[in-house]
Amino acid sequence: MSLHNLDNLYRQSVMAYAKHPRHYRPVATTDCNQATKYNPTCGDTITISVELSGDLITDIHFYGDGCAISKASASMMTDLVIGKDKAEIQQLMDNFLKMTMGEQVDTDTLGEAQLLAGVTKFPTRIKCATLPWHTLQALLFSKEEAK
Rank of each mutant, 00 (worst) to 15 (best):
E88I: 08
L80P: 06
G118Q: 10
D85S: 04
G111P: 05
M101F: 00
F122V: 11
T100R: 02
C32R: 13
D85H: 07
K86V: 04
L56D: 11
L116G: 07
L115M: 15
G111M: 05
I48R: 01
A87T: 11
M76H: 02
R125I: 12
T120N: 06
A117N: 09
G64Y: 04
K86S: 13
L131Y: 05
D59S: 15
L92P: 02
A68G: 10
M99F: 02
R125C: 12
Q34L: 06
A87K: 09
V50D: 04
L80W: 05
L110E: 01
Q104M: 11
G102L: 06
K86W: 00
T124C: 04
L52W: 03
T58G: 06
S73Y: 06
E103I: 04
L56I: 13
F122H: 13
D79L: 04
L116T: 08
E103F: 13
A72N: 08
M76R: 08
V119P: 01
M93D: 06
Q90E: 12
V50R: 04
A68C: 07
I60C: 14
L56E: 13
A113L: 14
K127N: 12
L131P: 03
A74Y: 05
Q114C: 10
G66E: 11
L80F: 09
I82E: 09
T120G: 00
Q34I: 04
T78V: 06
C42N: 02
T107S: 11
K121A: 15
M77P: 02
D55R: 09
D44W: 04
R125F: 08
V119W: 02
H61K: 11
K98E: 12
M77D: 05
L131D: 06
M93W: 03
G43R: 07
N95D: 13
Q114M: 14
T41C: 09
R125Y: 09
Y38A: 00
I126R: 00
D79Y: 10
V50P: 07
G102W: 11
D59W: 06
A68T: 08
C128R: 00
D44A: 10
T58I: 10
A117M: 05
C32Q: 12
L56M: 14
F96C: 09
N39V: 04
T109E: 06
D79Q: 12
I46L: 15
T78Q: 01
L116A: 08
T78L: 12
M101P: 00
V81S: 09
C67S: 04
T58A: 02
A129W: 05
E88C: 06
G102I: 12
I46G: 00
E88M: 11
M93S: 11
H61M: 10
Q104A: 11
L97E: 11
V81N: 06
V119A: 02
T107M: 08
N95W: 01
D85N: 15
E88K: 10
D55T: 14
T109Q: 13
Y38N: 07
V81L: 09
H134I: 07
D65K: 11
N33D: 14
I60T: 08
E88G: 11
G64C: 02
P40W: 03
W133A: 10
H134Y: 08
Q90V: 07
A35F: 00
M76W: 08
K121R: 15
K84T: 11
L116N: 01
S49C: 14
E51P: 00
P40S: 10
L110R: 04
R125S: 12
N39D: 10
T124W: 03
L131G: 07
K121Y: 06
